[in-house]
Design a binder for these strands. Structure first.
Lengths: 216, 216
DNA sequence: GTCTATAGTTGGATAGAC
DNA sequence: GTCTATCCAACTATAGAC
């Protein structure tokens, strides 16, 4: 039963498994190259080299350069959305609205700053890819945006956050503050968690006034 | 004295004047095209068409595509820096630190959202251009960053803002919140000034607690 | 200063061997 | 599934006419 042959097997399971594994390596390599060199600068040959193949071979797995970048971004968005949602679900039901926002901010930022991660590549790519891809991607992001919108409107309904600011503006401002970090962050001086804590403190508590103490 | 001849004049003033005017139109057109299509998507022929010339003619004014994009970005950064600085200088000397931050936030955002403006193109381009250009650009941005750093450290020294957050993180988070707007903002529902006010309210006052009243 | 024409590259995409 | 070879389109950049 434990047939060792691996060539020429009709067994679709193994073939699909192998192709799928290669596909995943390509996506990871593509994320790194696109992230580092930008959409314009990334060459298929660079991506192929990273997985030990030649440029032409990529076409067995993806229809085109654009299909590849889109697959990377789909995965990145899915990853971010699912991780943040999971983190929120894991909270006890009696957790306050402000704390929930804080958790979401931390989770999102940690994904953004994950070293060479697909999520962070996605964020950097969104404004670099051709308009058509971007439109589709932005449409998909609405679902993730809805998660944040609900977080904010629930908080407001409960009286946990101020009522004199537009929640769409606030939501985009938070996204900007977090996503921008993908560009300036260099590992070393601070951890993603520390940064998340400071941004959350600013967003939720505000800079003005407050204790003058050094960080606890 | 008022020599009307305009051809073959040795007079450097007029020649420079004309060339300079054309140069400015090209920069404005380039900003719009680069902003709309991204660094990768923008074609020299598109830019040339916008000023009513052919692609090849651009080379009389700029050495290369890269020189052109760099000139756009230099101008954009300078514009932003100078405008924000001027707005701050115009304030009465006794204005509080928090108010000064608010003014800087408003000024920066208004530039970012200026319709088809060179400043907003610059922001979008920074992570799209080749690494070498980006490095030079980021170096130039340090001077502008210094303005914000001083704004924040002065405020902290005066006890006007909380002491438990890292000011570099705060600075970059503010930049992110503001710059991101270049991407999502669509004129219509809100004015740049309203958006600036909401972001400033969040950054300075925080979302948590506060009045539940509708915007005044 | 701008045009036309074209040289020169680059890199995405395809075909067929293995 | 991957390779080699090649085609082909796109676009930057240059040369010389006007």
């Amino acid at each position: 039963m434990l047939d060792q042959r691996h060539a020429r097997r009709g067994d679709a399971t193994e073939d699909l498994g192998k192709a799928e594994a290669t596909r995943q390596s390509i996506l990871a390599a593509a994320a790194r190259v696109f992230r580092a060199d930008g959409y314009a600068g990334a060459r298929l040959s660079d991506i192929a080299a990273k997985v030990g193949m030649k440029a032409g071979s990529l076409y067995y797995h993806f229809d085109s350069r654009e299909a590849l970048v889109e697959a990377v971004m789909d995965l990145g968005l899915k990853q971010t959305h699912e991780t943040v949602a999971k983190r929120l679900r894991a909270l006890p039901p009696d957790v306050g609205h402000v704390r929930r926002l804080e958790v979401a901010i931390e989770a999102h930022l940690e994904l953004v700053l994950a070293h060479e991660d697909i999520s962070s590549a996605t964020i950097k790519l969104i404004w670099q890819v051709p308009a058509q891809i971007r439109e589709r991607q932005l449409a998909d992001q609405r679902a993730y945006g809805a998660l944040w919108r609900k977080l904010l409107t629930d908080a407001r309904k409960a009286g946990a956050i101020r009522g004199d600011v537009d929640l769409s503006v606030v939501r985009m401002a938070i996204m900007g503050a977090l996503n921008w970090a993908a560009d300036w962050y260099k590992p070393g001086r601070m951890t993603p968690r520390q940064i998340a804590r400071d941004i959350a403190a600013m967003v939720l508590g505000g800079l003005a006034g407050e204790p003058k103490n050094k960080r606890k």
